[in-house]
Design a protein around this nucleic acid. Structure first.
Length: 556
RNA sequence: UGACCCAUGGUGUAACGGUAGCACUACAGAUUUUGGUUCUGUCUGUUAAGGUUCGAAUCCUUAUGGGUCAACCA
């Protein structure tokens, strides 16, 4: 959406070929089909951008369709969350909000049609018996003893299944295809099961529910979907998808599969994410350490950065693990242009300017050096300041450019200062720095002639305020934690660091919840849900790139 | 050991029989009142073996490696 690449991905190639051939009158109609049983994650974001993006690019349409055929796991809570996320990403399904459950009656009629043409039968076998008769992929299955009931008997039985005359699990409807097929999905797949469960939309109207395979393709067909795009694991379902369309003689939607997104240092399966939530390892689905869209939103990502990321990762058929750094690159790129700069000191070290005689003054500092139109703001400067503790080093190596005894550094937007004395307590902990300033070095009017190697951030001790900072790290310690059962052992125990009392310039007293900030040299931040005991709480969206930290890491 | 799918630098992704390119990462340098940004440069790649061809990442064969499928989940 952001950029139209010159080269096409394989789905775009198919679409352009179809348009050239006048297939479906050159019409392009896609759909995004979430199951409302969990929150959307960054992998879904890729699928959303793909489906809705294709519709935009080829002047077609994209539907939102909830695949709600399993009343046991689905809920309206998820429906609302999903809609919020898609809208936030910037996509619009207009009036095309559909539900598989809207089509239950038509799907039921489709089932009767298959029964009457001898293509489906009611099976009384238990689920264990059915599994046993299917056998494994390397050997042919065997046919059910109920497979050759007459169309008429099947018809009557299916009517009675719907009427609620049979207990849950006692009967299923199956397609009659081929029990010896090497493709397991073609070994008489289940179409309907009996389930006495209330559905979040249809209530108790139904006690039989269609399976995914019997619902999805037919829903596509009903909606006139031209390109039904799904992930690779449905590749083996395609012959079945096509079989239903052919046997029913309905609109021939076509399925295309692409590789789902995997991100390093996290997991993407709903089951695993649910487990992390349920075991209380995070606050919830929108905890900023989660890979959900809601979490990225709360953490301070922008919709544009996620859309751009989706475009950067591309669309192909090979399994992939995308570097987290690509996502971070994408959000930094966006935030650098829009974020308001502010100064916040995470770990304050008092600095007293012993030669500063004024009763304080205001210095003007730019709000965004990348964008002059964002203007400047006045910041209070005085004799008593706070700087970052790690910006001072007593025995500094030669490549440490910040403050050291007898050394000079510029305070961002203000003066160059000189460190004269280090005040310590009995344990040797540094309590305070006594410094002097160079009056002629004032920012914007510097005629001191002095060049310093570094500029550091600071706040005025008297007027600064407390803020809380929530600093996040990757959820998992290892790049690919996707082991089946042991993934929990790779959880990063230090994925959240809370700085309860950082000191911020006074302007942050009334933070704008809609704005993205850059706390100079600390990273990009966004207001979390609000305040804790009157103290504003900020989530760190992402750090700034830090060459110094890297070189330090290397020499260690 | 059945069927289907996939294989290009560290990670992704292009090249549609004719110069292996782009992004991220990493590294080096320049600029910089954020060790940020910006700019410049460098490193690293066609899984293997055969075949077709004047010419193969691309087509064919085989091998190897990886993924998916045996839920009354989607």
């Amino acid at each position: 959406m952001e950029d139209s690449k010159k080269t096409l991905n394989f789905i775009e190639e198919i679409i352009e070929e179809d348009i050239r051939n006048g297939k479906h009158g050159g019409r392009v109609h896609t759909r995004f089909p979430p199951e409302p049983n969990g929150y959307l994650h960054i992998g879904h974001a890729k699928a959303i951008c793909l489906n809705f993006g294709l519709a935009v690019k080829y002047k077609g349409k994209a539907n939102l369709r909830f695949d709600d055929t399993n009343p046991v796991t689905e809920d309206t809570e998820y429906v609302e969350a999903i809609k919020t996320d898609i809208r936030w990403l910037g996509f619009d399904w207009e009036d095309r909000e559909y539900y598989a459950s809207d089509y239950f009656e038509r799907l039921y009629q489709f089932a009767l049609q298959l029964i009457d043409t001898g293509k489906a039968y009611v099976d009384d076998s238990s689920s264990e018996e059915i599994a046993a008769m299917k056998k494994g992929p390397t050997e042919p299955g065997i046919e059910s003893p109920y497979r050759n009931r007459s169309a008429d008997e099947n018809h009557q039985l299916f009517l009675r299944m719907r009427a609620g005359e049979f207990p849950e699990g006692s009967k299923v409807l199956r397609a009659k295809i081929d029990m010896t097929s090497p493709n397991m999905h073609l070994r008489d797949p289940l179409l309907y099961r009996i389930l006495y469960k209330e559905h979040h939309r249809t209530g108790n109207k139904w006690c039989i529910y269609p399976m995914y395979d019997f619902a999805h393709g037919q829903c596509d067909s009903i909606e006139g979907i031209t390109h039904s795009i799904c992930t690779l694991e449905f590749e083996n379902h395609k012959p079945l998808y096509n079989w239903f369309i052919r046997e029913l003689g309905i609109f021939p939607s076509q399925q295309y599969e692409f590789a789902r997104l995997n991100l390093s240092y996290t997991v993407m399966s709903k089951r695993k994410l649910l487990k992390i939530v349920n075991e209380g390892l995070v606050e919830g689905w929108d905890d900023p350490r989660m890979p959900t869209i809601a979490a990225f939103r709360r953490k301070g990502y922008t919709p544009a950065s996620i859309r751009n990321f989706a475009s950067l990762v591309g669309v192909a058929k090979r399994d992939n693990v995308i570097d987290l750094s690509l996502l971070e690159h994408s959000v930094r790129e966006d935030l650098n242009k829009i974020a308001l700069r502010m100064m916040v000191v995470k770990d304050p070290l008092p600095v007293t300017l012993t030669d500063y005689k004024l009763n304080g003054e205001l210095v003007e500092i730019e709000n965004n050096p990348e964008d002059e139109s964002q203007g400047t703001r006045p910041v209070t400067f005085s004799r008593n300041l706070l700087i970052e503790r790690e910006d001072f080093m007593e025995d500094a190596p030669s490549n440490f450019f910040r403050l050291k005894p007898g050394g000079m550094v510029r305070l961002k937007g203000a003066y160059i200062i000189l460190c004269n004395e280090v005040v310590k307590d009995a344990h040797g902990r540094i309590l305070e720095l006594k410094c002097s300033h160079i009056p002629e070095s004032r920012s914007g009017n510097d005629h001191s002639g002095i060049k310093v190697k570094s500029t550091i951030h600071w706040v005025d001790a008297g007027t600064s305020i407390d803020v809380e900072l929530k600093l996040y790290d990757r959820l998992f310690r290892v790049e690919d934690p996707n082991g089946e059962d042991d993934f929990m052992q790779f959880i990063n125990p230090e994925s959240l660091e809370i700085v309860k009392y950082a000191r911020a310039e006074a302007a942050l007293q009334k933070p704008d919840p809609g704005k993205h900030y850059q706390f100079v040299r600390l990273g990009y931040f966004k207001l979390d849900h609000g305040f804790r005991d009157g103290v504003p709480v900020f989530n760190r969206t992402v750090t700034l790139k830090d060459g110094w930290a890297k070189s330090k890491h290397k020499s260690n």
